[in-house]
Amino acid sequence: MQKELIKGNEAVIKGALMAGCSLYFGYPITPASEIAQAAAYYFPLLGGTFVQAESEVAAINMVYGASAAGKRVMTASSGPGLSLKQEGISYCAGAELPCVIADIMRAGPGLGNIWPEQGDYNQMVKGGGHGNYRNIVLAPNSAQEMCDLTMKAFELADIYRNPCIVITDAYIGQMMEPVEFPTTRKKVPYKEWALYGDEKSKKNLVTSILMNTHLEEEHNKKLQKKYQTIAENEVLYEALNTEDADIVLVGYGIISRILLNVMEILRKQDKKVGLIRPITLFPFPSDFISQAADSVKSFLVVELSNGQMIDDVKLAVNGRKDVHFYNRMGGAVPSVDEIVDVVKKFI
């Protein structure tokens, strides 16, 4: 066999280890617990560290410390846990610490339930914590991408010295699919700014406090410039049949897979339907959607939320075309037929 049949959540950990990640700090939460369990199993076998932290808050701050120490480090959680981690993510962003955080989204608000939702879009893509910052956000829709995009997340996090989120839903996390893994483990680069606990690195300071307003403003400008660079260089998306499409469906995660079926069914009925799947949620494929808006008649955004990603689609379309919306919330997932019917209303 060339591939391993593996759960998306477990593929995250194998991908992380192949990316050179050596520390995992986390707190159990459904439906992300398999990630912590896989980390607890594999990390110690490879000289790595797994610590079940006392809280989500402690976990992200352990990540902050390990990242500052120059290591590749990650944590994972789901909505309520991510809410708790936001302060720490803001600190990582402020101190420009690379780290990878997986968010296996569940329904909310509050305790909600453990079924899949996409209601964390705003908190993870728009910032979530205090201050002017952005996370890089990758949205896998298969077990293979759970591995690949986790590995990519470590690379991007290091290149940009920025938190990088792997965001998906419980289905993609729970699902088993064939995954092809790399055969060599990535080397972790030496980080000139990190604290290795040695003479060479002791000059370094990891902090997010700048009491001087001028310096804090300069720091903010530098961060904004970095986010601009990311927006210009790191956009990933998948586009299918958009060239001649009358209507383009937009969705990520599990929804993008349901939309694939919807598109296939409608194409067989000679309906000109296309699909755009953002793979990076920040940076968002705004330019491509804007271009698509030149030729298509309308868009249909489907989300497992109250309509969070749709704001970004609307900004890209900028009022030129209709942007329709269909959603389910609370853990309900639409069927293919359900969306086929919705699309037919708009064509």
């Binding site: 520390l23 700090f25 560290t49 610590v51 932290a53 808050v57 402690a58 976990a59 701050n61 352990m62 990540v63 902050y64 410390g65 390990a66 990242s67 500052a68 120490a69 480090v73 604290l195 606990g197």
Partner: peptide
């Protein structure tokens, strides 16, 4: 917690 991350 930060110290834990550093030390580990």
């Amino acid at each position: 917690a930060v110290a834990t991350g550093l030390k580990r």
